[in-house]
Amino acid sequence: MIDAAAFEALKFQGDPLADAVVAELVSTNRVHVVNEVLEHFRTNDQPIPEQLPGVVREFLVATDDPPAWVDPDRVARAYEFFVDDGVHVASVLTFGAMVNCYAHARASRALTLTHGLNQPQRRLSETSQFVMNMMGRDAFGSGGSFVPTVQKTRLIHAAVRHFLTASGRWDVEADGVPICQQDMVGALLIFSVQVIDGMRRIGISVTEQEAQDYYYVWRAAGGMLGIPADAVPESVDEGRELSAAMVEAAYGPSPEGVVLTRHLLDLYEKLFPGKLFDGIVAAMVRRVVNPEVADWMEVPNSRAWGRVVDVGTRLMRTLERSEDNSALATTILDRAGALLLGGSVRNLTNGQSTTLTIPADLRERWEAEGRAPDLPDGKPATTPG
């Protein structure tokens, strides 16, 4: 596992390939041209647009392949896990992973300086779309859409680093570069091992094999994102150790984190009609994240709603144990997650310039098994094509 000194050095490492592209585009005033072209670059099989500047085309060619060690069988197993439990992954990502991201003061400050304090929809939409594309069938190969997602993400991060550093509002000497490799490792662990742990906290059964396979896909994604291979542990257990020793140890309170969390809670309280159930969202957050993090982020603490969530967790565990033998139990579990994801789609696409696109293969599997989320007018979330 990476040692403390090497992990600290990651604060000052960006993404040389993507950073060089953005520097060239800015110096030649061609950023807007690239934005317009890449908006329509969405699938792995799609030819690289001819009208792109040469420096961008070279970047897309150089970053087109997953790491050589990626095993398609393990990726396929992770896909099956996501078919079964993707809606629960979405639940924990919503209630826990985002708040854990906000508990990192440097990351919250970068988000605030980039997007402002009141845009949780954008951050959640981008993260959800990344995960959806990553967990689609053959995400790294023919028919998938994850490769351009990763490539665009790297360019966006490079643009943020460039403009935030140039703005004079970021102290590189004290804080490292914005969206540094240390931040990238932290985000990878939050969305992988911490999501698995959060699922287990709310009563969702995740086998060790499923946890290893889900983490494996995130490791592959990390390689495609340009994260140094030696910075990401090979096993989920080692990832959990690094998360506790380096990532969670850096959590703490910040004004930006508190405000970002409050806006996220406000967004998800809209899932429930009226004011009667407002406390349930905060109680779910407190169930998924560590109590100290919830306190730092000033997540409301209601004993009554906490007891409701405790009862619900015990019920979830009971239903999980009976899932193989009970069609009713399966229906309750799946629809609970689907309703949350459907609510996410409703809120994220309401007045937003982006939509949450569920890959066609995932939607087909979920629809066949009665798990697909619906929009309020009965229309499903969009699929490619």
Rank of each mutant, 00 (worst) to 15 (best):
V22P: 03
K11P: 00
M199D: 01
T357R: 09
H263N: 13
A5K: 08
V185T: 09
N350H: 12
A187H: 01
D295S: 13
V83R: 10
A18E: 01
D361K: 09
L276N: 13
L60G: 06
V92M: 06
I227T: 08
P300F: 08
V131R: 02
F82N: 03
R363H: 09
L319N: 01
K270V: 12
R123Q: 08
F277H: 12
V206F: 04
E241M: 08
T357M: 13
G86R: 02
S344M: 15
A372E: 01
G144P: 03
L164K: 05
D3G: 08
E126A: 15
E248Y: 06
R371P: 02
E364Y: 03
A158M: 09
C180R: 02
R321C: 06
W366Q: 02
I332M: 08
A245Y: 04
V309K: 04
L10Y: 04
T127H: 06
R123P: 03
F277S: 13
T207E: 08
A107Y: 06
S167T: 11
G337Q: 01
H32W: 09
V309R: 04
V311R: 13
G54Q: 14
A229W: 08
A329L: 03
F81L: 14
S128L: 14
E173R: 10
F191D: 00
R137T: 11
E234S: 09
P47G: 10
I48P: 05
V195F: 07
E50W: 07
A68R: 10
A158E: 02
D213K: 12
A97I: 05
M316P: 01
R161L: 07
H32D: 12
K379I: 08
N100L: 12
A110M: 09
L10W: 03
E248P: 03
I332A: 07
L319D: 00
F12Y: 15
A220F: 04
S91K: 07
F59I: 10
Q119R: 15
G96K: 05
F163V: 07
V131S: 01
G274I: 12
R137C: 10
D85Q: 14
P384M: 11
E256A: 12
R335I: 12
A166M: 11
T114W: 05
P273T: 15
A5E: 12
P53A: 15
L339W: 15
T331F: 10
N290G: 12
E24M: 06
T330W: 05
P291E: 03
F41Q: 04
A174H: 11
E24Q: 15
A97R: 05
P49T: 05
A329P: 00
